[in-house]
Design a protein around this nucleic acid. Sequence first.
DNA 1: CTAATAGTGTCTATTAGACAGTATGTT
DNA 2: AACATACTGTCTAATAGACACTATTAG
Lengths: 273, 273
Amino acid sequence: MNKYSSEEEFLKNYDSSVFQKLSMTTDIIIFSVSDEEVNNYRKLNKKYFSVLLIKRDNYPFKDKWCLPGGFIKIDEELEEAPKRILANETNIHNIYLEQLYTFGGVDRDPRMRIVSTSYMALIDKNKLKDKLNDNASWFNVEYYENGNIISVRLTNKKEILTFKIKKVLKDLTTDRYKFEVIENNDIAFDHALVIISGIERLKNKIEYTDIVFNMMPKYFTLGELQQVYEVILNKKLLDPAFRRIIASKVIKTDKIKTGEGHRPSHLYMYKSK
Amino acid sequence: MNKYSSEEEFLKNYDSSVFQKLSMTTDIIIFSVSDEEVNNYRKLNKKYFSVLLIKRDNYPFKDKWCLPGGFIKIDEELEEAPKRILANETNIHNIYLEQLYTFGGVDRDPRMRIVSTSYMALIDKNKLKDKLNDNASWFNVEYYENGNIISVRLTNKKEILTFKIKKVLKDLTTDRYKFEVIENNDIAFDHALVIISGIERLKNKIEYTDIVFNMMPKYFTLGELQQVYEVILNKKLLDPAFRRIIASKVIKTDKIKTGEGHRPSHLYMYKSK
DNA sequence: CTAATAGTGTCTATTAGACAGTATGTT
DNA sequence: AACATACTGTCTAATAGACACTATTAG
């Protein structure tokens, strides 16, 4: 077994082809905040959280929507790949980036065996100066839970994409679920799973971190911020409780947002620790 | 670009060698609970949480300690690899297994480019019927935090392994840290990083899940359970508060543990929901 | 008796939930 | 004035932290 007398000698003679190699990619779920105009002029534009999807113009899954992503280069740190792709897709620096999960199903890509490490990125869409590529589009995210079924609805101006996920409890000591896609016509690869994982991660982290501010513009009203929390958590929050909790995280500016058909509100900024 | 008229035709002609492939491995951090005998007969044996390490008898990192692990096979689901290795290392079924993180530094393995997906497993050591392999050993885990430096101390009957990790804040909106190894003579590869990631994950999850019961024997006293919490969280807990919180998670049995040099205590079982 | 842990009672401080009420812009 | 949201006050319920106390075994 130990036929080599030193590490140098071992490495010089190492045959890297003993194990069959495979391809790796990264997929990035980019979240941001957008709003949808409401026809009643007095109502606040409804805030959504949204995700960036790309329409595939190549096989496989031609004409379906997928997450931005690409192959990991052999001489590239794993985390450099999503950074490279984000730089390509946006012109923003200092983007919040977090590793989500590594998906390694054998048949997840019809071309060959590909393992993919997914990342979640949060950006303030207002910082995007350039227009998106033609094949890219923001979709507002809505989801509904009914028992152990989650229905996800992604909408842009022209299209409605929907899919359904079944949550299967994985063990009794934690609330870990295995997600299974039970209905999907629009999303390529296993990206419906990546999207639901991203939604769940965002939903969890928004409650105990300041992660949401990565998606907000510099100035915002507390009403807008509360709406973003509500649409991500998918539940109404009580005003006084929300303001109590958020109070320590924001700074009130002397700017005021007027012209909304109701009492104007103060603009706030994020106060980092 | 779209020179193919169908997905079938595209796949038939797909050249899978366009992108250079790489090797993938998995590393598993297996935690369990053990205790160390105390010479004063009246004292409770001190509980620790412990990790399974393997002494490398091959290059690279010959004679250093590493986590159990191995290569991902080309036709094997990613999660099957740690399951296969666990089955090899233990004889236990239904092991708690959770994906930890995918490490993808370019030079993390001196042989070649290897990306590794790490998993955390929790087992009740008492269920291990067979003896461990000669090159495997349980190490009790202790860690100390001093500012942004974490010192980790792993001990078995014969050896003391130590390493130091620096926590570097990654962003201002969450408490995410980048870990950097600043002192390490005993642990192979980047496994010191995997170990600290595992400790942090366990420490976080023990507070809001029932994860700890995967490591406990069927019957345990509340004092023992509290000690496990204390050594994982690295802080003393107050008895009444601990018992209040844990009360809903356990069932009191009519068994009693005697012969300890002090008032005997009731044995409890985990009550799953 | 003493050492050591088991286990309980209760006060207090903090926080979350609920709801009612006041304030102030636009049309 | 009517509408819609902004913003605050306060009661209540639930929870966490602290500490003091009692109980019971082996030796």
